[in-house]
Design a protein around this nucleic acid. Structure first.
Lengths: 243, 243
DNA sequence: CGGGTGTTTGAATAATGTCAAACCGAGTGG
DNA sequence: CCACTCGGTTTGACATTATTCAAACACCCG
């Protein structure tokens, strides 16, 4: 197997040791309540790169906590064009929709080997009712999703290609840097394809390639073979803000 | 005063007669609980076009139900460019953020005369705690916001100008048609400026003008002097889906 | 009448998409 | 070990789409 994307998918031994506990809904439970989650939880699971958690139109019976690895959320238009909505990293809470039995509006594809913690979907609402703190936490998470979506929309709608790519990479990198507590210069292993970036930003893969070259030549960032290196964060930031 | 945008801002006499009750958080309360809301509510208020409910960076002490009129939610970039995030219509719940005291990430500007129902912000979380059904309803609303945001992102990221405008107008019109129960051909009074459309779609106002001309010449939609007429809904839809 | 805001149009330019071909490295089967 | 395929990257030439700048126009309102 080996460490394809920097790290092998890893399943924690129980919620108590779960590395992403504080990032997701589970943080609403104090340690003494963790057994509630353990009991509710269906299982842990490992999925290979390129497999799907769920596809648009499906009514999966599960909801997921992303434990390790990367997942893209995306939509596909009638025209065949794809829009990447989000690049989800460990700690993301995936597959929740307000109406439990409504078909998913988007698909979720693993872009690396992935480990998830699985919750049953049908009974999830009743879990929320029994533990209001979970509901409040979920509200926070979803509200954050809204803001992140607005951010993404603003990026795609209001910035030119170069700035747009800069901002996008910056976001991913920053999110990583302060969710795990890692120094900002440290290279990040992430299986980002130029086509994925393009689909996220509404830009052709071919054009993304040229933009990345610019950024590389200007010594701002480099993305090669699945590792992202921030060469000049301040410079990138200035570019993204449009100077 | 007169009916500038089709209708004068109107304040209902008590929650019981509120026209938008079912569309917003309030629908979580059955009639017998409405006095809870009446007591919690700060006041009703009328604002003129061009005034702000709040601006980005502020920490307003209030949250709003939009009773009548139209409001744009937007962001402004350092570069001066503006991104319109949403065109809010009656029934929208505006100004909620998970963290009560965090500065607003976006601004909200009335684009017509507007009537709102005002809730105090500081104590809102405790209202949610005392009435879990309100919390659940809010979760639904916010989750819908997420989906709408994804929709908008997909539109801006994955469609060309013409299709993008078509889809945008279609969305607004459909939302209206089934939130009030009005026939789909009926013209809609909405103070949409070409610049606003542009800011929503990431397209220059000048270019929007040309695109609107195309759509008009093709007998698909017309937008003139604040009234939106769907001339050929099916055709529009086909265009938006990219045929 | 005069100013302000929003619309409309043209010409030139810039940004991005499309098509096509070559390349590259990792895996696979002979 | 080689030939081969496959997914992804890279580059060039060219077409399309959208921006920019500038000017004129239309309309409403005081």
């Amino acid at each position: 197997m080996g460490t394809i994307n920097g790290e092998a998918p890893r399943i924690p031994e129980g919620c108590r040791r779960c590395a992403i506990r504080e990032m997701t809904v589970c943080s609403a439970m104090v340690s003494s309540q963790l057994d509630v989650l353990e009991k509710f939880k269906t299982c842990d699971r490992i999925l290979p790169a390129r497999s799907h958690l769920y596809r648009a139109g499906e009514r999966p019976g599960e909801i997921y906590n992303l434990l390790s690895g990367w997942v893209t959320l995306y939509r596909i238009l009638e025209s065949g064009k794809r829009q990447v909505l989000q690049i989800a990293s460990p700690g993301a809470f995936l597959g929740y929709q307000a109406r439990v039995d409504a078909p998913m509006q988007h698909g979720a594809e693993c872009i690396s080997d992935v480990a998830v913690c699985v919750f049953p979907r049908r009974t999830f609402p009743s879990l929320l009712e029994q533990h209001p703190s979970l509901g409040r936490r979920l509200l926070e998470l979803i509200a954050d999703d809204v803001v992140r979506g607005q951010d993404q929309l603003t990026n795609v709608g209001a910035r030119f290609g170069l700035e747009r790519v800069a901002y996008f990479l910056l976001q991913i990198h920053l999110h990583q840097a302060n969710s795990r507590n890692t120094p900002p210069e440290q290279p990040l292993d992430i299986p980002l394809t130029q086509e994925m970036i393009g689909d996220a930003l509404g830009i052709t893969a071919v054009h993304i390639n040229r933009l990345l070259r610019h950024l590389r030549e200007r010594q701002l960032v480099s993305l090669r073979k699945g590792t992202l290196r921030m060469l000049n964060i301040d410079g990138l930031q200035r570019l993204a803000e449009g100077s």
